[in-house]
Nucleic acid binder design. Structure first.
Lengths: 340, 340
DNA sequence: ATGAAAGCGCTAACAA
DNA sequence: TTGTTAGCGCTTTCAT
């Protein structure tokens, strides 16, 4: 095992102290008035052997790490995977690395992950918060750690957050149904107190009540439930609500299950049932018919998140709340008749 | 900023040395014959304040980290995202955390990532190797770091690796075409010397030459190319090879571009063109017609990778080479006429 | 039955 | 112009 070269080794080689080497490497040689000659020789040597200081040791010493902790629900979910990718790219350019962890929306796991992040002295936190994680976030907040929360926010405490306008998005989606020949839009939504779901429901309620329509909502819990069960829940819902002629699904996962449900029921889209999905998916461009979707601007999300975090890492500033509008991508699944 | 409690603080509280506390916490109290009474009091206190030693310091001291470095091409690619998720899950259960990085198939970035992994003392490496990364891997190998390579392997050096049987898979796919009414299968493949691509091509060549058919191959480089360009390359390829009646795409990315190309050309699947995709995708279950795909067993992949890595982390053993067969999922895009 | 002390590799206040 | 030294928080050898 070839032993790594350390600052000490270099110091010995030049018969100076580690401090001198440290200053030179960290560009503080001038202000320490170290001789130009020594500076050059050391720098040349460092370049030659391609020496890089141990970040671990630096971290232990300085409390910094050049690492950003990124915590999402599930990295295999394309929404998070794409966001993670963009954040990773941009952070990389700024010299930061990412530690990426999935919580599975499990509070305990999220707690452990946050602990691990702290323990490793990550310089900043980017978090899609699961339920019940408030205490840990408060602790971080108290300790002045830079945090950006995204996808949803926690009402109790103030953080910088980046979200989309969930309420407005679903509101517009329902209007889109109504303007395109549908009369009884229903909502299939995740049963969760998280803000994004609450707001999506709000937008739906606002739209139906503005048109004096009944609210027809199916809430689905996702614990201990597999695809097949979700599909059959949706089938039951459709069967027992014959009046509905259109469905807004609150996530692309539900939309995918919903499409399977409709195939089984042999319900025709868009003639017999209109469909809109929250969150776009590759699939929706290709499906027959193509599926109208509310698309969150992922690139912009990632940009904003990192921009805010870097700013906060630089200096603890007041919190930013950024709301990025989503776009309704009009495809064929939500047009019953030609618009008047 | 609430200062973290350290071992020293605990030692002071009990008026013993840090060594004693360290022994107790690491379960070496018995063999060190520390008094039962002290053990209990310390353990109780530790539980009460929920003390956990700094992994950073432990890492610096021991060279271990309880972290596994996972390097993939692109975390936003569903294949890698799913593998990453499973590996993360399983590693988590074993007490390991994952640092996940994308290389973008960029050698320089991959080098830096490996360096970062080393620097952080990761205990094991799981790597989908980009081209030209051999020297770095050799260094790791020399230093006895546990490595598992996956998705492809590097011929020069021996590592433990987990791959699918690429050659056999494409061979069978072409046979599937021929058994189902197609006569001129073509291949659209990534232009890369990586083993998985070479082997996929081999399987194709083996199948066509066994049937005395011409090899009709389109190789596509992915550098500085966007979706639209790939699509138009595929359109050109189809236009200038009128004889072909079926295409095997070497990745789900190419398949998705290919589907768009065929839509633009208004070529009917499966009547005018048969399609098989290497790697499955949600989309393919839903597309009209459904798309036949060679599916790599992701769960099994993740299992094997981690199993081997953990074994190697335990004791440096000879390398394992695991080849996991893929499954041809027969859907409708590759059946021209009913099988005889 | 317990502790002193060295040291992992680095930084930075303070000396000289 | 450079060096000394005290840690960061932990593990572990060797003493007692």
């Amino acid at each position: 095992m070839s032993k790594r070269i350390s600052m000490n080794d270099i110091a010995e080689k030049f018969e100076v102290s580690t401090a001198t080497i440290s200053y030179i490497i960290n560009g503080k040689a001038r202000e320490k008035r170290i001789s130009e000659d020594l500076i050059k020789r050391v720098l040349d040597f460092v370049a030659e052997i391609d020496y890089q200081p141990s970040q671990l040791a630096q971290s232990l010493r300085t409390g910094k790490s050049k690492i950003i902790g990124l915590m999402v629900d599930d990295i295999s979910n394309p929404f998070f995977a794409e966001i993670a990718k963009r954040i990773e790219d941009k952070a990389y350019q700024k010299g930061y690395r990412i530690i990426l962890c999935s919580t599975d929306n499990n509070t305990k796991k999220a707690q452990e992950i946050i602990r691990m992040f702290r323990d490793r002295n990550v310089d900043g936190y980017i978090i899609a918060p699961p339920e019940g994680i408030e205490p840990e976030l408060e602790d971080l907040q108290k300790d002045q750690k830079p945090i950006v929360v995204f996808d949803r926010f926690l009402s109790e405490i103030n953080y910088s957050y980046v979200i989309t306008d969930n309420c407005e998005s679903t509101y517009q989606a329902i209007l889109h149904f109504l303007e395109n020949g549908y009369q009884r839009p229903a909502l299939v939504i995740l049963d969760s107190p998280q803000s994004q779901m609450v707001d999506r429901e709000k937008g739906y309620l606002k739209a139906v009540s503005a048109h004096h329509l009944p609210a027809i909502i199916k809430k689905i819990k996702l614990e201990n439930v597999n695809d097949a069960e979700v599909i059959s829940l949706i089938i039951n819902f459709i069967d027992s609500n014959k009046s509905i002629d259109s469905i807004l699904f609150s996530s692309n996962y539900f939309t995918r299950c919903g499409l399977e449900a409709l195939e089984k029921l042999e319900v025709k889209i868009p003639e017999e049932m209109g469909i809109i999905s929250f969150d776009d998916h590759d699939l929706f461009r290709f499906y027959s018919p193509t599926i109208t979707a509310i698309a969150q601007p992922i690139e912009k999300f990632a940009d904003e998140i990192l921009k805010i975090l870097l700013k906060k890492m630089d200096a603890m500033l007041p919190d930013d709340a950024v709301v990025i509008p989503s776009t309704l991508i009009e495809r064929k699944s939500a047009i019953k008749k030609v618009r008047a």
